[in-house]
Simulated scan of single mutants.
Amino acid sequence: MLSYQHAFHAGNLADVQKHALLAWALDYLTRKDKPVSYLETHAGRGLYRLSAPEAEKTGEAAKGILAHADWFPAAHPYAQRLAETRAMLGDDAYPGSPLIAAMTLRDIDRLHLAELHPQEHAGLVQAMQGWEADIRKQDGFEMALSLCPPTPRRGLLLCDPSFEVKEDYDRIPKVFAALARKWNVGILALWYPILRGGPHGPMVAALKAQHADILVHEVRFPPARDGHRMEGSGMIFVNPPFGLADEAARLSALYKGLR
């Protein structure tokens, strides 16, 4: 059940939503002179090449960040991370969320990453060379539950599964409930695909029911190709940082222009 590799999808319209909101939230957290913990349950390989055969085969990046980089002014945290990645690693380099986090965090902050897929884990270790990170070849939910509440207590967790394991739809509300009990000050973020048939619906409803302070942001976009089931993507933030709802609304307006 570990077949998913994000290289085929890096930089697509779902990544644009996820990484724009993540970069904004991390930038917000690091404005204060207080340390931050960042945890990621499904880290992937951390760095992608948009000229790679996988990316060119699907063409998703060409319809994503390569077509819509102008959505983000130079001062936007996402645009800054993209520019920094290209300056360091070449014009075709695209940062995954672990690299976006590493470039945003400071020496006082802590970075914890889990990735179970053998090839993705090896790629992650290579991509994160030179960055201070706790990288684990471990089930990400188990890592999160074992570390929470982390030190420092202030921070953000990103859960970004591929959902190739269908049980994740049922598992995530239970894991988030446990994490919220253990780490009531933490920002818990979840990305999910919006697929034809709406399998995400019960999961989202359960999360809304169990968390009082929650931001749900969904965007729709044309399928990447004929027969592709993904019609959009969603982000959920439990304990969302102040101002994130405004950034989400700005993104919503941009995605509506795609139709």
Rank of each mutant, 00 (worst) to 15 (best):
M203L: 04
L158E: 08
F72C: 02
L207F: 02
A101C: 06
E40R: 08
L89F: 14
D139I: 02
G243I: 06
A249S: 13
H6Y: 05
R49C: 02
R154M: 07
G198P: 01
H211R: 00
K18T: 11
N184S: 15
H9Y: 10
A122T: 11
M230Q: 13
A25M: 06
I214E: 06
K63D: 03
L89V: 01
G243K: 02
Q126E: 14
A74I: 03
Q5G: 01
P222C: 11
G197H: 02
L50T: 02
P193Y: 00
L50E: 04
Y94A: 01
L26F: 01
K208D: 01
R259D: 13
G59S: 00
L105K: 03
F176P: 12
A87G: 13
F176K: 11
F72K: 01
A20H: 01
L50I: 03
A55Q: 03
A20Q: 03
L179Q: 07
A52H: 11
L215F: 11
A25Y: 05
P77I: 10
A212T: 07
A178K: 13
L13C: 08
L158H: 06
H68R: 05
H121Y: 15
C159A: 15
I65W: 03
T30H: 09
A83L: 04
L26S: 06
P241F: 07
A224H: 12
E56I: 10
A224E: 11
Y94S: 06
G234P: 12
K166D: 13
G198W: 00
Q80F: 00
F176N: 10
M88C: 13
M203H: 00
R31A: 14
A52K: 09
A43W: 09
Q138H: 08
L26H: 04
G90V: 05
A212C: 00
H121G: 08
L22E: 05
Q5S: 09
L82P: 08
